[in-house]
């Protein structure tokens, strides 16, 4: 199946719009921000539901603890900030007040990964997924495009339990159908092939689809593309089946190659069906300033890098 992107849209825009709809449907939803309301597109929610919008100021740890308290009293708090601030500054309360308490709090972040661009290394989250994966009971979601972000926002509100969801800042290709729905436990297969399985998350999914086109047309290699929108709990069945069918795997993530999607898939396949795995992602390094496209290119987060890794993985098959 080929999926053609129709246009570009930022996931945070879809998120903000969906929050207003959900806020009208469910009066338990409370939205918190740590001085980043506009950046995360919360203004519409704040206007529509001022009594359920909590401005926390620049206090990420306090925001996470407050969200936990709201959840423990029956609310559905959605705590928002940038990915790096949520998962580093807010880590201890996320671990104990939210995770250990099994609080029904949703941590929703934007500006994940490298695409925060010119702000540089301090603001680029390469490790947020790894940190959140290690919290027992935490669901970790990275939608692939704006339509999926909207569907995922609804799904996490309906899900009972703590969730970390990372959204992108910049407009990225929209390829999923607005009405496709979202199942947390299911990694959709976007394209079927038998030579290599590309498991991608977040904005790398559209690049994986591009790479699959190029692999087919230029190299005669047929790729399966799996959209791993939920890194935890991982859809082990789909990933293992894809590895079994194709005999090798490429992972692609806008995140460190350590501890994120590449790590999670390697853990699963090591136990279920060991095959060669090539990981596309950020090496073990900090980032730097630059336009998002420049950073993606410089740090090897491109469809060309996925193609190269796919050919390498295919070459490693016995």
């Amino acid at each position: 199946m080929n999926i053609q992107a129709t246009a570009k849209r930022a996931m945070r825009d879809a998120f903000g719009e969906t929050l207003v709809t959900l806020g009208g449907e469910n009066s338990d939803i409370v939205v918190l921000t740590a001085d980043l309301a506009e950046a995360i597109r919360l203004d519409a929610f704040a206007t529509a539901f001022p009594e359920r919008f909590i401005q926390m100021g620049i206090s990420e740890a306090d925001m996470m603890g407050t969200a936990a308290g709201l959840a423990l009293a029956g609310k559905i708090p959605i705590a928002t900030t940038f990915a790096i601030f949520a998962t580093s500054l807010g880590n201890q309360p996320i671990r104990v007040s939210i995770g250990y308490n099994k609080a029904n709090a949703k941590i929703c972040t934007s500006h994940g990964g490298v695409t925060v661009g010119p702000d540089g290394a301090t603001h680029q989250a390469f490790e947020d997924v790894a940190l959140m994966r290690m919290i027992p009971g935490m669901t970790v979601i990275l939608p692939a495009d704006a339509n999926e972000a909207a569907a995922a926002t609804r799904a996490i509100v309906e899900h009972d339990g703590p969730v970390y969801m990372r959204l992108g800042r910049i407009p990225t290709p929209v390829f999923s159908h607005p009405d496709q729905g979202f199942r947390i436990d299911e990694a959709p297969i976007l394209r079927d092939g038998r030579d290599v399985a590309i498991c991608a998350m977040g904005i790398m999914v559209s690049m994986a689809l591009e790479a699959a086109d190029e692999l087919a047309s230029e190299h005669g290699v047929e790729a399966t593309v799996v959209n791993v929108h939920t890194i935890k709990p991982l859809d082990k069945g789909t990933v293992t089946d894809a590895a079994r069918r194709c005999g090798c795997v490429v992972t692609a993530e806008e995140h460190s190659v350590l501890g994120g999607l590449g790590g999670a898939i390697s853990e699963v396949l090591g136990a279920t069906h060991p095959v060669p795995v090539e990981r596309v992602g950020v090496a073990d390094t900090f980032g730097e300033s630059g336009e998002p496209d420049e950073i993606l290119e410089a740090y090897g987060l491109t469809s060309a890098a996925i193609v190269a890794s796919a050919l390498q993985a295919v070459g490693r098959k016995r």
């Binding site: 909590i54 996470m64 407050t66 936990a68 308290g69 309360p93």
Partner: peptide, 10 residues
Amino acid sequence: PSVANGLAMA
């Protein structure tokens, strides 16, 4: 204290 505040807000 943060959790207490959240409980109080709710």
